[in-house]
Simulated assay, not measured.
Amino acid sequence: MAFPIVRHRRLRQNAAIRGLVRETVLTVDDFIQPIFITYGSGIKNEISSMPGVFHFSLDTLEEELKEIVELGISAVLLFGIPSEKDSVGSSGFDENGIVQEATRVIKSLYPDLLVVADTCLCEFTDHGHCGMVHTFERDGHVHGDVLNDESLELLTRTAVSQARAGADIIAPSNMMDGFVYAIRKGLDEAGFSHVPIMSYSVKYASAFYGPFREAADSAPQFGDRKTYQMDPANVLEAIREAESDVQEGADMLMVKPALAFMDVIRLLRDQFDLPLVAYNVSGEYSMVKAAAQQGWINERAIVTEMLLGMKRAGADIIITYFAKDMARWLRERN
């Protein structure tokens, strides 16, 4: 049957009917709020390229946590900016490193707030890469090879130290081959078999990470990350990456970035039955904030539509710098 018997607009004619037939709904339980922690005291410094996002020292963290908990957000993702860096990122796996210290502070203040620890070395290495690097000079320029297998041991030490500090979920973002297997084995051997791994399974070498590089002080000092992060042109490769992580013991899969890779989110949703995470990254956040500050867009409407799109594509969980904003808007709507 077709028009005039079929009239699709019947189910759109008022807000109540639209609400009854709405297929995708955002809730505060969908969101994880990222937090940037740094050394020092009395620090709450706004990140210039990410309006509304701050660096916090441990002594100013409580105010931020209180707001997050009162808004009903149940999880935070921790990134740490260390006081010192070296070639192997040793402060990343230091038992008293910034992420470990922040985790203990959070758990002492809000034991039920989930702590997701980003497990990578790029914030902690002086070269800004996500693993150990063999450097050499050629044609007057510094070059380097990221050493895959040697990096796995350091990443495993980082994950175990984070779990020992109280992290509820380990989220490795380094894109080394075999990282899930190595970290799962290390966690199990250290007595943390109950700690799940939220794997950055499909992480593209994306231009959308620009503001994050400022926030985490993690820009590579030479070269780029294209030898270990994925080519944005590829989608079949995403299946191979995710399948490897499933076989190695991942508990959750992630696609990063989200906005330009909705097709990949849908593909993984159709291929795998693990919980799926979309990371609404810094560049996606900053573009919206900048346009909103100019009065060019309706920020609330744009953000809602964007996050709905990620969930509609198949994401169960969304990591987003808009988490607090969205939680407020959802509360106002209710």
Rank of each mutant, 00 (worst) to 15 (best):
V202E: 01
S49M: 15
K289T: 03
A216H: 03
V76L: 09
R12Q: 11
V21T: 11
I68A: 08
G140Q: 07
A238W: 00
H8T: 15
L71R: 14
V246W: 04
V6Q: 14
V146S: 05
R328V: 10
K107P: 04
V264W: 02
M306A: 07
D325F: 10
A171L: 09
W329R: 02
L155E: 04
L78N: 02
E332F: 08
S151W: 07
A163F: 14
G140Y: 06
Q229M: 00
A258D: 02
S206G: 06
D112L: 10
M1T: 14
K85C: 10
S74K: 14
G128N: 12
L65C: 11
D29R: 12
L113Q: 10
R328G: 05
D30L: 10
V6T: 14
D145K: 10
D217C: 09
V202L: 03
F179Q: 15
V99H: 02
P275M: 09
E150Y: 09
F54E: 03
V25C: 05
P172Y: 04
L61N: 09
K44V: 08
M252Y: 15
E63H: 06
V28H: 07
F31Y: 14
E189V: 00
A233H: 04
E189S: 11
K256H: 02
L307Q: 11
A301C: 01
L58Y: 05
I265C: 07
V160E: 15
A215I: 01
T24I: 12
G42E: 13
D59R: 06
P257G: 00
F192R: 01
E214G: 02
L276D: 11
N96H: 15
D29Y: 06
A315M: 11
N45F: 07
R225E: 03
V6L: 13
E46R: 13
S91I: 02
L114C: 14
K289M: 09
E332H: 06
G144E: 14
A16E: 07
F261T: 02
I37L: 15
G89V: 07
M50E: 04
V69S: 15
A313K: 00
R300P: 02
T227A: 07
Y181G: 09
L71T: 08
H143N: 11
Y228K: 00
L276R: 12
I17P: 01
E248T: 03
M306W: 06
E284L: 03
E243I: 00
P111N: 12
D231I: 00
L276P: 12
E70M: 05
R164I: 11
V25W: 09
L65R: 07
N45Y: 12
D188V: 05
A163G: 15
N14I: 00
K203I: 01
I43F: 08
D273N: 15
I297P: 01
R266E: 13
S41R: 15
H8Y: 15
Q100S: 09
S57A: 11
L307T: 10
Y209K: 04
D245Q: 11
K85A: 10
M254L: 11
Q162P: 08
K85V: 08
G128I: 05
N148H: 04
E64Q: 13
E70G: 01
S193E: 14
R331G: 11
A2Y: 08
R240K: 04
R157G: 01
R7P: 03
A291Y: 10
T125L: 07
Q293H: 13
D231R: 02
Y285C: 04
I169V: 15
F3R: 03
R157L: 07
D251T: 05
S91P: 03
A167T: 13
